[in-house]
Design a protein around this nucleic acid. Structure first.
Lengths: 209, 209
DNA sequence: ACTCTTACTGACCCAAGAGTCAGCAAGCAG
DNA sequence: CTGCTTGCTGACTCTTGGGTCAGTAAGAGT
């Protein structure tokens, strides 16, 4: 009676599998409360093997952030600058969708980890700034500029501080993070904000609600 | 040669002193990385004594949040509802000051702790919601309602979602928390937001910048 | 089928830090 | 001055969890 092998050798896939398991674990528990043993179990791997691929828990953490963040940002920033649709259409469509999806997305978790562990990992903060925050803000600025150039929008404070465009979405993320998605309707909050935003940007003055 | 006593017995003052020291320590390190021994040393007290007054580290944490949060909230919410100044004046004055002060205030630290440890202390989250978030939002709603009633403001989405009023201030807090007050000018960001907000609320339509 | 490389395991080690407790001494009462 | 209460100390224990390594077995090569 031949037993099936107790494990397979899959050198190639291990790092990605471990990274994915680590992301889930960090998402649930936060960095400090996530045990390396948990990550290993989730990845279907022994603790020893994990330490073959990642020198320390901290290095594993950095790998997670890197692997999760970059792909998400590229897609959106590219879309924002393209001329495929009007700036207003982009705000009402893709941008609004993005904002509504934020609380449930991996980026929400990265934001949380940034707040939690950022002070102890300055290089990670730099990485996040360069690759996410800063690029996102630039994309928004470019979007508004495109709208102004095309005569859709007037010049407002939003050109200077695109932070104000994202702020409500970030707050929605925090509310769901802290209060476990019960005490505020994120979708309506985002919709209200988009209305206010576009009314403010509009060249034609106030429309009826 | 008589030595001065090695310690004084000050039963009454100990809890408050320990709570204060704990707040500073949690602020610097976060809950998980703060050592009880550090708190004790900072309070000028032995670890054993700390455990006389607080059964566990967690209970100490709750005591900290309770003692820090309540006094701050009362002052502002009361001012918001009083008729001493017009709603617009209140927004341009005290509310704006409050927003600018937020990142450096204890509330910022409590927000961080809420994000970090909230999931493990549901009763604390409830406490925070009841005594801070919910009350703050109600006060803002009341403020806007007062403005509308007095003919200063028109009805807008802000009445429904006062979250949108605070959102930029919260984002400013996060930026300083994560990026250590270098990469955004919080004060100007708040000023810009207040301008946009009041323009939107104004019954008379758009004014010149 | 036999060998050899190496991906992989899991028992182990050890530092860190939460929580305990027997005893010490401040300082009031008589 | 003496005794007694109790606020206070700090050395101790014990658990938790990050990190190691000697050994095991997958599975390719011959």
């Amino acid at each position: 009676m031949s037993t099936s092998p107790r494990y397979q050798r899959r050198k190639e896939d291990r790092p990605a599998e471990i990274t994915a398991a680590a992301f889930e674990t960090f998402a649930e528990k936060g960095y400090a409360n996530a045990k390396v043993a948990d990550v290993a179990r989730r990845a279907g791997v022994s603790k020893g093997l994990l330490y073959v691929y990642f020198k320390t828990k901290e290095e594993l953490f950095k790998a997670v952030v890197r692997s999760v963040v970059i792909p998400r940002v590229n897609a959106l920033t590219e879309a924002a600058v393209s001329d495929a649709e009007s700036a207003e259409a982009f705000i009402r469509g893709p941008l609004r969708q993005f904002m509504k999806a934020l609380p449930g997305s991996p980026i929400a978790i990265v934001i949380k980890l940034m707040i939690t562990e950022g002070s102890r990992h300055p290089d990670l903060v730099d990485f996040y700034w360069d690759n996410v925050a800063s690029r996102g803000l630039d994309a928004l600025r470019a979007l508004i500029a495109r709208g102004v150039r095309g005569g859709e929008f007037r010049e407002t404070r939003y050109s200077e501080y695109p932070h104000l465009i994202m702020a409500p979405a970030v707050v929605a993320v925090l509310f769901e993070l802290i209060f476990k998605n019960q005490r505020v309707n994120s979708d309506e909050l985002i919709d209200s904000h988009i209305d206010i935003l576009l009314e403010n940007l509009s060249v034609s003055g106030r429309a009826e609600t």
